[in-house]
Design a protein around this nucleic acid. Structure first.
Lengths: 143, 143
DNA sequence: TTTGAAGATGATAATGGTTCTCATTTGCAA
DNA sequence: TTGCAAATGAGAACCATTATCATCTTCAAA
């Protein structure tokens, strides 16, 4: 199941509409894992899909609430979305080319939980963003 | 040296002006460690200082660049500043009352560095935000 | 398959945080 | 005290995002 199924939407309690199918398809295409609303909007237009920016924002938010997408608040103001693959991970963001790399470190995860509970907090979620520079050659990553 | 010294500004290469002194004094007063531009603006007005919002934003940014303040991008859109005390730390933010608690965990820090360098990144900085609920009684924290 | 109403869309206005503009004021070295 | 570069403040401008609302779709029921 890589191609968008109307069921993905149905299961999320959302009507299966053209904009929603297109947006889900875009994320599932995997070309770009992390996209802002603007990115999605432009990509859809480039694909010839006629969609409104307001709809993109709405759908992105709905998908987030439905658990289809995960939203990230990176530095820079605009939030970025990625397909929810179930498995949590954190991010390294290249300050030069904007490339986002994902990682998961069990030790970090467990220490976080420990720190929070020790202080009487019930963890909801967390975000760990490492801002760095791609070190080798001229940014091995895209753009 | 807890009261604002003109030298703090001089050392940062900034002219010693009334708004800058007031803003620095506010942070050094320690009443509120984490404040948004709006928070600072309102507090200054409440103190009887006549300042413009634009100036607050400008000064906050200058202080950040000068290393006097540290800026945080918590969820919620607006950035928050705190006095730079030299020692890095991360944050737990209560989703109910907005209370911010600081912590430092050496294990987490070193694992982060490891993860990043392993992937060919030169770490610039990072942000680790744990979003949680104060677990005991009705939010032991303020507001 | 047609139909109708709830729900979705999209153009645009509105919002909220932040930055820019520019005329006026201030800090400070000479 | 003076002169000017730097700083300030009021308001316009900006940008990402959300709200409004008239029109258009989806989909279940007939």
């Amino acid at each position: 199941m890589d191609k968008p199924q109307p069921d993905d939407l149905k299961d999320a309690g959302l009507k299966s509409t053209v904009p929603r199918l297109n947006i889900l398809a875009l994320f599932k295409s995997g070309q770009e894992r992390h996209m802002s609303a603007e990115d999605v909007y432009k990509q859809l237009l480039a694909n010839g899909d006629d969609v409104g920016l307001a709809t993109v924002y709405r759908v992105l938010t709905q998908f987030e609430q439905a658990g289809l997408l995960v939203r990230h608040y990176f530095e820079g103001g605009k939030s970025v979305f990625e397909l929810n693959q179930g498995k949590h991970h954190d991010h390294i963001v290249c300050l030069q080319c904007g490339h986002v790399e994902e990682f998961y470190d069990a030790a970090i995860e467990s220490r976080q939980e420990k720190v929070a509970t020790e202080r009487g907090f019930a963890v909801h979620n967390h975000s760990l963003h490492i801002y760095a520079d791609c070190v080798n050659k001229a940014c091995p990553h895209k753009h």
